[in-house]
Design a protein around this nucleic acid. Structure first.
Lengths: 199, 199
DNA sequence: AAACAAAATCGACCGCAGTCATTTTTGTTT
DNA sequence: AAACAAAAATGACTGCGGTCGATTTTGTTT
């Protein structure tokens, strides 16, 4: 069980996150100062920093919470026996939808996630690899169904599709692909990756 | 011909960039203040901002200058008739070498390039598409040699390989792949993309 | 060479992210 | 309930990125 202290901490953390999202959404990330955010959350400025290390960390926490939720939902409703392309589309589009709905936060979050500052612990590495392994069961079943070659490492397969995701997100942020064309483009690219670029 | 004024401007810009790289390399980007940088370059703080809009822009300009140079060299020494995998490896490894030699700058540069802040002009979009078209001649020749399917759009082909590049860079920054294993991993992934992931 | 407009330079100033010594709150012991 | 130690909260303060109006330099015209 959580002590009263711990419950309050968890609760206040949520308050800060909610206040942050209200203000960031209304005025934008850059235009919201920590002091203002603290006022909105009904606490002092310094207190914010005992819950989050930096301003960006607040965004990161929000996105991670949200994505954890999205992924859990997906895991619960997953059907490992639908065709691979379909499964990948459901997963990537869910993640993309979250990013595109929160364009500014998504950018800050992905920037740090894709190209992180020098990381310290071996723990960070573990987290990252965990992310790559998330889809392993899907790939294994697809291999069993002969939808994927069995002579490839799962890590590599994960890599290919993650690379495509990075590509699509980057193209979207660069304005090369409008939101409504993303699904089609994504599916095309997945299919081509499966078929190969060679004649 | 450039006027005296223009020559001075170009020259002073170079001075600032050189001072910046000296300090950033020695003390790191965050630890170097603009005021210090101005002192090193022998000018006032405000002057720096009539050459560059933001601190990050200084890094960006440095990386772009450098990469332009790398790309020009590659273009001159290119042999469009060597096998596609080989050509791609030369190009991507050249870019990657630049990034990995300047880890901190490379990160800041790529963060902005991959996931840029809301862009304004249609010009930015043009620049980005230009980058994708850079390798078109290579792909076309590869198609003629039957190394690539001809029923695919060149933009998509470019996308596939650029996606792989993003993947490798991200894995490297996340500490998942050490520098010396990048070439092997890169080549493996390129080959798999060509062959396809389907049995 | 004097007068002058345009361009370039400058540094005092502003707002904000992040720190830290001090104060307040909380839970426990006597 | 008084005393006390640990945890949490606080806001004055620091340093830096970026701005802007004042000042100097430059090139041109008379």
């Amino acid at each position: 069980m959580y002590s009263i202290r711990e419950k309050n901490k968890i609760n206040k953390r949520k308050c800060i996150l909610e206040a942050a999202m209200r203000l960031f959404s209304k005025k934008g990330y850059e235009q919201t100062s920590i002091e203002e955010l603290a006022r909105e959350a009904g606490i002092g400025k310094g207190t914010v920093y005992s819950y989050f290390q930096t301003k960006k960390d607040i965004v990161r926490a929000f996105c991670e919470d949200e994505l954890d939720y999205v992924r859990q939902e997906l895991a619960e409703n997953a059907n490992l026996d639908t065709p691979l392309v379909e499964q990948l589309m459901i997963i990537f589009m869910a993640e993309f939808r979250h990013v595109s709905k929160n364009k500014e936060f998504g950018r800050l979050y992905l920037q740090e996630k894709i190209l992180p500052r020098e990381h310290h612990s071996a723990e960070d590495l573990e987290v990252q690899e965990q992310y790559f392994k998330l889809l392993y069961p899907i790939y294994q079943r697809a291999q069993e169904r002969k939808e994927l070659r069995t002579d490839l490492e799962l890590l590599h397969i994960s890599g290919h599709f993650y690379g495509l995701y990075l590509l699509m997100v980057s193209c979207w942020y660069n304005g090369m692909i409008p939101t409504e064309e993303i699904p089609e483009a994504m599916e095309t690219m997945i299919r081509q990756t499966l078929e190969g670029l060679k004649p």
